[in-house]
């Protein structure tokens, strides 16, 4: 293994770092975790809408990653794979915990103007939280993370059309008017 300075390591891409981590390089692993912590946290937060829970989920996901990394096979992008890890961790968390809708704290919903808008937002979020796991996953990845249906299909291990269907269902349940342009997205 060629010796790399830390700075060089920082410049390695995910797959290179994964390969090194799999070979036992803990610094490579550390860089990976640090590099993706924010992304993981963001996803976790969007899932549970609560800072502490999101931190817990992210932490668990990071720990899982330590063992899971050797099974990353490069069939999808590392980040896709990571999304999946976080979402699965979040689902585990959700199954073990009380309904996340009850945990909506003040900090989570802060719509700047007007009480009424705030209530609408809160209501909307509650509806999102109540979505079935798969629809919620698809919605958060497509609308929350801005991924294409194709990418989400990889993450969710299903067909693209299934993702579109999840999104469609989720929108229906949330009472969102369908945007024609969006329909052909991905």
């Amino acid at each position: 293994m060629p010796r790399h300075t830390d700075k060089m390591m920082q410049n390695l891409d995910d797959n290179q770092l994964v390969a090194r981590a799999c070979a036992g390089d803990s610094r490579a692993f550390e860089i990976l975790v640090e590099r993706h912590y924010d992304r993981m946290f963001r996803m976790a937060f969007k899932w549970c809408r609560n800072r502490e829970s999101a931190e817990d989920i992210t932490q668990n996901a990071c720990i899982k990653l330590a063992r899971a990394i050797s099974s990353f096979k490069g069939r999808a992008a590392f980040t896709s794979w990571l999304y999946r890890l976080v979402i699965n961790t979040a689902i585990d968390w959700q199954r073990q915990n009380v309904k996340p809708t009850e945990e909506l704290g003040d900090e989570t919903v802060a719509v700047p103007a007007g009480v009424e808008e705030k209530m609408i937002a809160e209501e909307g979020l509650a509806k999102v939280m109540a979505l079935p796991e798969k629809e919620k996953t698809a919605l958060l990845l497509v609308l929350g993370e801005g991924l294409s249906h194709k990418e989400v299909a990889v993450i969710m291990e299903c067909k693209e059309s299934t993702v579109s269907w999840y999104i469609f269902e989720a929108r229906k349940k949330l009472g969102v008017k369908t945007d024609k342009k969006e329909r052909h997205h991905g």
Binding site: V33, Q59, I63
Partner: peptide, 8 residues
Amino acid sequence: AVNLALAE
């Protein structure tokens, strides 16, 4: 999180 992950 990073430290725990590293320990693991």
